[in-house]
Nucleic acid binder design. Structure first.
Length: 725
DNA sequence: CAATCCCATTTTTTT
DNA sequence: AATGGGATTG
């Protein structure tokens, strides 16, 4: 057994696995076997150090990674179950902790709390802004949402935020934040940040709970440490007693979630935070050939803010990395599809991946693959559980599980339309406020009697009857699939979908999505034996990667650079290597942002085991208009001799030299089109801003600018005294 | 109250 | 290109 755990490891990996009981930081380069190190460490602790599974907590980045980790450990130990071993994402672990003890926090939450997703919370922000007459053009809901999220990551609740608010923006949204939290509270709902933030407050404020977990967890193992945020860091410190061993694995070169609050300083400061920590570097790469690794190493070496390491591989021989400059995005897709077909002679589809910066780029590839009948799967994108029809059905179930969930209740009250209109809803909300009762309670009262017009009352009655019947089925312990089917049937959802023809998604597709939901619920019931509440929680916390089908159908994977993290493929197409796409237009304000984009590129390159193909397009459709594109500056950071240029279509020359010239040309002043999307401008009255888009030309050139202080304005270029900076 | 039409805007990445 | 919101109409 001991052999099984240690023999597959190289000396550095073994040192990490068998390392001290103090803190350990494993700096694991791409493809150096970091997941393996955690799995083997867990197995080692259980087997050789005789720890109980009860004493370990392993944190992964996705639920899928958690499952794989558990499988690996079980295989190493020849066990077919390990029920007391906690493995999960920060969010799912926090949800679990809160289910047990959220009642000990102030705020009146109970164990049936719902988890509000990004869509729910955005809707909530919009409603609040509208109610308060705050202009959405100056306070974009998205910005407000992320400010609230940021505040929670900094452990600032609404009160603390209001106190600290200085800028006009902060002072305006402080009450919005307060109202947002109030609404979540009355809905017995938590957003993603709350899951972490509440757990922090619970552990910090409640000694008994804190000591319970501290006494339990003797080892904390954290994967992807470079992408933890400040709250997660504080949680770690709260959970770790002085005698607990913290084992963190990560790679600062793969930190790509700064925009979500991840703080690369966590990993850079590990040795300071955990004095005496042992540091193990894993620099041997088992994945890629030398040409691939060399190109990737050279690129990422341009970053300043890194610990630095030197990845090497024994796979000396290998095909050169190629670069293809396509005349257009269509032809880029055609090139990829053609190449996929050629590989198909000796490789499987599943061994190939097409990677891009933005989800919108998947389209041209989907079209090309559809044409050539290449089987593919888009990972992520518009997520399954965010599709409207799926959310509608889920919302019924959410109300059944948590009747206080007002957000879900308002969503389905009149879906499919049953005659409960805006006026009625407003009346009901007023009544709830006056009587100090819950919205759901008021609806039930008014359905039975009350002062509403008869038509509205009958409509309410219909809704309440459905919910009552659903409730009975939940209590009777009906299986999950049956619950979903009941919702469909009782609400007449299928014929409602039929009536939705016209623009928008094909009703047939929507129907299939719903059927998919029903079978996902069945599957969950059979495989995990889970309850409705467990299904809803799981569902709320799935990641893009969780949708990667394990069923093993042979498909080419299409996915973003973020979604591809942690995966590997024999053949990788890294596409859209263009200026303003990678690095993205919206991410070049600071060096830190550009460095993150460079890491993103590095992550994409290092996914490839045998073949890496880079592509870009000279012209591309962006929001429906054809744009001229330039190659990504990152391409010039990789020496020409490390890249072989593909001729591809004869008319397309496209050499690195040419790329260099184009970039030089760009550096020189460009008089003909001064207002480029993304460039900074100054206006005498509105101050500094960024050009969002342009319209028309010559005399009629209009420029849309997002000003720092004054929001979005559309200006006539020849009138406004706009100065390009 | 619901359906229809028109206009404007757009996420870059997601637990 | 596609989607969502707002206003308008039946």
């Amino acid at each position: 057994m001991r052999e099984k755990i240690l023999s597959p490891l190289n000396p550095e990996q073994e040192r990490a696995v068998t390392g001290t009981d103090g803190a350990v930081l494993v700096l694991a380069g791409a493809g150096s076997g970091k997941t393996r190190v955690i799995a083997h460490r867990v197995a080692w602790l259980l087997q050789e150090r005789h720890l109980s599974p009860h004493n370990l907590l392993a944190v992964t980045f996705t639920n899928k990674a958690a499952e794989e980790m558990r499988d690996r450990v079980m295989a190493l130990l020849n066990k077919d179950r390990l029920p007391f071993l906690w493995i999960g994402t920060f969010h799912s672990i926090c949800a679990r902790i809160l289910r047990a003890d959220i009642g000990r926090l102030e705020g009146g939450y109970n164990t049936y709390f719902s988890i509000a997703d990004a869509d729910d919370t955005l809707g909530l922000v919009k409603r609040i802004l509208k109610e308060r007459g705050i202009s959405e053009s100056n306070f974009q809901p998205r910005k407000v949402q992320s400010a609230i999220s940021r505040a929670k990551a900094d452990a600032l609740d609404a009160e603390a935020y209001a106190e600290k608010a200085r800028t006009y923006f902060q002072r305006t949204i402080a009450p919005v934040y307060r109202e947002y939290d109030r609404r979540l509270r009355e809905s017995n709902s938590l957003d993603f940040d709350d899951l972490l933030f509440f757990t922090e407050r619970l552990l910090e404020g409640d000694e008994e709970v804190r000591e319970r977990y501290r006494a339990r967890f003797l080892h904390l193992l954290v994967d992807e440490y470079q992408d933890t945020n400040r709250t997660q860091y504080r949680l770690l410190r709260l959970l770790a007693s002085p005698r607990c061993s913290v084992f963190a694995v990560g790679d600062e070169d793969q930190s790509i979630y700064r925009w979500r609050g991840a703080d690369i300083q966590n990993i850079l400061d590990f040795q300071r935070d955990f004095p005496g920590a042992e540091v193990v570097k894993l620099e041997r790469n088992y994945r890629s050939t030398r040409p691939i690794l060399e190109a990737a190493n050279t690129l990422v070496a341009h970053n300043e803010n890194r610990l630095g390491k030197n990845l090497w591989t024994e796979r000396e021989e290998g095909e050169a990395v190629t670069l293809f400059a396509a005349p257009s995005d269509r032809e880029e897709a055609a090139y990829v599809a053609d190449t996929v077909e050629r590989y198909k002679a000796f490789a499987e589809y599943r061994q190939m991946a097409v990677v891009y910066r933005t989800n919108a780029q998947s389209r041209s590839f989907e079209e090309a693959f559809l044409n050539r009948r290449i089987a593919y799967q888009v990972v992520g994108g518009i997520k399954f559980y965010e599709r409207r029809e799926v959310k509608d059905v889920l919302s019924y179930l959410r109300v059944a599980a948590n009747p206080l969930d007002r957000i879900s209740l308002l969503r389905v009250l009149n879906v499919p339309p049953r005659g409960i209109g805006k006026v009625t809803v407003e009346t009901l909300e007023d009544m709830a406020r006056e009587r100090g009762g819950t919205l759901y309670g008021v609806i039930r009262e008014e359905a039975a009697k009350g002062g509403l017009p008869p038509r509205a009352r009958v409509a309410l009655r219909g809704f309440v009857d459905i919910m009552d019947a659903l409730d009975r089925k939940v209590r009777a312990g009906k299986d999950l699939g049956a619950l979903a089917e009941f919702v469909l049937e009782a609400t007449g959802y299928v014929s409602y979908l039929d009536s939705l023809k016209g623009p928008g998604p094909d009703p047939q597709d929507r129907l299939e999505n719903i059927q998919e939901l029903v079978s996902a619920m069945r599957d969950f019931e059979i495989r995990q034996g889970g309850s409705l509440a467990e299904f809803l929680e799981r569902q709320a916390l799935v990641s893009d990667q969780d949708s990667l089908d394990a069923s093993g159908t042979d498909t080419v994977k299409l996915l973003t650079l973020h979604a591809v993290k942690g995966l590997e493929f024999p053949i990788v197409f890294l596409t859209g290597l263009e200026e303003d796409l990678l690095p993205h237009v919206l991410s070049q304000e600071s060096d830190a942002e550009v460095e993150e984009e460079r890491r993103l590129c590095y992550v994409g390159m290092t996914r490839a085991m045998d073949r890496l193909h880079l592509t870009w397009a000279r012209r591309r459709y962006v929001y429906g208009t054809l744009e001229d594109r330039r190659p990504s500056p990152f391409l010039l950071e990789i020496p020409g001799e490390m890249i072989r240029e593909e001729a591809g279509v004869p008319s397309a020359g496209g050499s690195l030299l040419e790329a260099a010239q184009m970039l030089e040309r760009k550096a020189a002043p460009k008089p003909q089109r001064p207002f480029k999307v993304g460039c900074r401008v100054h206006h005498p009255k509105f101050g500094f801003g960024i050009v969002l888009s342009t319209k028309g030309e010559g005399e009629d050139l209009k420029v849309t600018v997002s000003f720092n202080r004054h929001g979005r304005k559309m200006l006539l270029a020849r009138m406004a005294k706009l100065e390009v900076l």
